[in-house]
């Protein structure tokens, strides 16, 4: 076991972790933050995307111990004072989800993109989502929602 401390959505946590515990299971099973989901478990689908020090990462491909000292943001941490994050609002407005399984990963990938490139073109948005798979929407409305946020 190893002691690890990090913040998740601004809340400090100190945990004793087994080195082999993947961050996604630490978030879901130890901290009960089930908004981060597991889609593929093979690093391909992006459903488990969270922000690690502001950058999008796949929580199924990071050990909890590697996150020692980091600031983590999950989908639960985006809303502020009871109102949704602008991207969450726009996903809602543009009907950018159907089953919703990919949505938390999509939103966090978009937050990371807009932090790096505040006004991406539609092409850049599509490329930035290459690590996030959606089996329902056909992506069009997701791209529209992010484009609306970029304006």
């Amino acid at each position: 076991m190893r002691s690890v401390s990090f913040t998740v959505n601004g809340v400090a946590h100190e945990l004793e972790l087994e080195p082999r515990e993947l961050l996604v299971y630490v978030l879901r099973e130890r901290l009960g933050l089930t908004g981060t989901v597991v889609g593929c478990d093979t690093s391909s689908c992006g459903a488990c995307t969270v922000l690690l020090d502001g950058e999008s990462v796949k929580a199924c491909t990071i050990l909890g111990v590697q996150a020692d000292g980091a600031a983590i943001t999950t989908i639960e941490g985006l809303a502020e004072n009871g109102s949704l994050h602008p991207l969450q609002e726009l996903f809602h407005e543009h009907h950018a989800l159907q089953c919703g399984y990919c949505t938390s990963g999509m939103v966090l990938a978009a937050v990371s993109l807009l932090a790096e490139n505040p006004s991406p073109t539609s092409d850049e948005i599509r490329h930035a989502l290459e690590g996030n798979i959606c089996r329902c929407t056909g992506y069009q409305n997701i791209v529209d929602a992010i484009e609306a946020a970029a304006r």
Partner: peptide, 9 residues
Amino acid sequence: VGDPQVRHR
């Protein structure tokens, strides 16, 4: 290489 999440790590 890969996708943005892969390139961040």
